[in-house]
């Protein structure tokens, strides 16, 4: 069964493609690392899957899954770190599926949130302000929110960038646990060693697909060189793309 299918997908900004004519699928319960150089379209692809960016061509189909079944962890820079909220309140946002924008949080949800904090190693941090957290603690908190969201599909955009080894190991253990629970995981990563050790599947992206499949077969010297030679999009004199959907 395919959780997410990409059919001739092009995503981009201002007519410039960031992801160019991609075909393929993420299987249900698979764990895929998305790697590639900066500007290769990795984050753009996640945004496309989340439905935050409509495709310029092609279609992204979620098999049986609705938008509420996908949890998304954006890059760190996207949240306001100084915002006056407590850690517990942020984790409780993970219960949005049940509370909606207006409903209250039940005692059971609070307990779940406390448990999630324990699971990410932040026990007793519930009352603290998020402004007081370190980068690693903040990422642990956001993982606790993912735990509460309890989604079939989990998208992680550079979850371990600027995070120390111990926190990364703890959070990777959580990701592996999700994999054992047969959730579908797609993570944008930069550390090849980490990918080889933990991720069975890899999508090597350089605006177009360079390789997609078992990690050992995709992460070859040849493929990596090809990805490195990608030139970033943005040439205003580039002619319109004539490739049509096959």
């Amino acid at each position: 069964m395919n959780a997410i299918r990409l059919t001739d997908v092009t995503l981009g900004y201002d007519r410039h493609p960031a992801v160019h004519h991609i075909d393929g699928h993420f299987e249900d319960g698979s764990m895929t690392a998305v790697i590639g150089p900066n500007g290769a379209g990795k984050s753009t692809l996640l945004k496309g899957i989340m439905g935050l960016l409509p495709p310029l061509t092609g279609a992204i189909t979620l098999d049986g899954a609705t938008c509420g079944d996908i949890a998304y962890l954006p890059q760190q820079a996207d949240i306001d770190r100084e915002f006056p909220l407590s850690v517990l309140d942020v984790v409780l946002l993970g219960a949005w599926k049940w509370t909606g924008p207006f409903g209250g949080a039940t005692r059971a949800m609070r307990q779940q949130a406390e448990e999630a904090l324990r699971a990410v190693g932040l026990e007793g941090f519930g009352k603290r302000q998020i402004a007081a957290l370190s980068a690693g603690q903040r990422q642990r908190m956001l993982f606790a929110r993912l735990l509460l969201q309890d989604c079939r599909v989990i998208l992680l955009d550079e979850p371990f960038t600027a995070i120390d080894a111990r926190t990364t190991a703890d959070l990777l253990a959580l990701v592996n646990h999700w994999h054992e629970e047969r959730r579908t995981i797609i993570a944008v990563l930069h550390d090849f060693v980490q990918v080889r050790r933990n991720f069975p599947q890899t999508l090597l992206l350089a605006r177009e697909t360079i390789g997609w499949g078992a990690t050992a077969e995709v992460l070859t010297a040849e493929n990596l060189l090809a990805a490195q030679n990608m030139c970033e999009a943005g040439d205003d004199r580039a002619p319109p793309c004539r490739r049509s959907a096959s």
């Binding site: 989340m50 935050l52 938008c67 509420g68 996908i70 949890a71 998304y72 954006p74 996207d78 949240i79 306001d80 915002f83 909220l85 942020v90 946002l93 949005w96 599926k97 924008p101 207006f102 929110r145 969201q149």
Partner: peptide, 22 residues
């Protein structure tokens, strides 16, 4: 008071709001 929670989330983490709520 009606829009309080979405407004807080929209300030603090707009990406999250879009992912769970549009």
């Amino acid at each position: 008071s009606l829009i309080y929670r979405p407004l807080v989330v929209e300030c603090f983490d707009p990406g999250f709001l879009r992912s769970v709520h549009g």
